[in-house]
């Protein structure tokens, strides 16, 4: 307990220190970057604007890459934590098969679904032989037949999220069971919320999973 507090306190103070340094650096910066003087019409202002834009784009790309890296590292950390807490293999497997949920008649991924999927990516990347089947499910409301199509779209949404982040498409199979296989037989919002889901099943390569590396 106390050690944790201590550790947390230290990381906060390091963070503060870093902020101060950055702020300090910022204060000095303006002098080294003079305002561009209005240039004569012969030298088109467009050029410098274009340069600024391309710098901004590069900066944004680098930020995005850093953010992705941070998210990835977070996922690795979470995956590893999960592995440590529940026994490594079980933990890794649970990470891969963790269920995600959806809103009524929607196939868009919610934030909680995205972070659940984020955690799967490092495990999938560390285990190239691992293949999975994503099964889309719906609640009991609405058209039985439309719900099969909706379940397919839910499975596809998870697959797309994973493949856009590096998982090879042929490792992820999709299937829909519509409203046919509820996990909760109830007829209330609680049951419906549990039933609107994607389930992830390991179809091959899951006997011995590698722990993801940063």
């Amino acid at each position: 307990m106390t050690r944790q507090h201590h550790a947390a306190g230290r990381s906060i103070s390091i963070g503060l220190l870093a902020t101060v340094i950055v702020l300090g650096a910022c204060h000095k910066k303006p002098e080294t970057a003079p305002e561009p003087v209005a240039t004569p019409a012969a030298t088109p202002a467009v050029d410098s604007a274009a340069i600024r834009d391309s710098i901004a784009r590069a900066q944004a790309a680098r930020d995005a890459a850093l953010a992705r890296q941070r998210a990835y590292d977070d996922s690795v950390r979470r995956a590893n934590e999960a592995a440590a807490s529940a026994g490594e293999q079980t933990g890794l497997r649970n990470t891969v098969t963790a269920v995600i949920h959806f809103d009524f008649d929607r196939s868009e991924l919610r934030d909680d679904a995205r972070s659940t999927l984020d955690a799967k990516i490092p495990v999938l990347m560390a285990n190239p032989d691992l293949t999975i089947r994503v099964a889309g499910h719906t609640d009991e409301r609405g058209s039985v037949e439309y719900n099969i199509a909706l379940g397919q779209r839910r499975a596809a949404a998870a697959k797309r999220y994973l493949t856009e982040r590096g998982v090879t498409a042929n490792r992820v199979e999709t299937v829909s069971f519509g409203e046919g296989r509820p996990v909760n037989e109830g007829h209330d919002e609680d049951a419906w919320g549990q039933n609107r889901r994607d389930e992830f099943e390991i179809t091959a390569g899951g006997s011995r999973l590698n722990r993801p590396r940063t």
Partner: peptide, 9 residues
């Protein structure tokens, strides 16, 4: 009939 795949149906 309707065919549903990863791009809708």
């Amino acid at each position: 009939y309707s065919h549903a795949d990863d791009e809708g149906s």
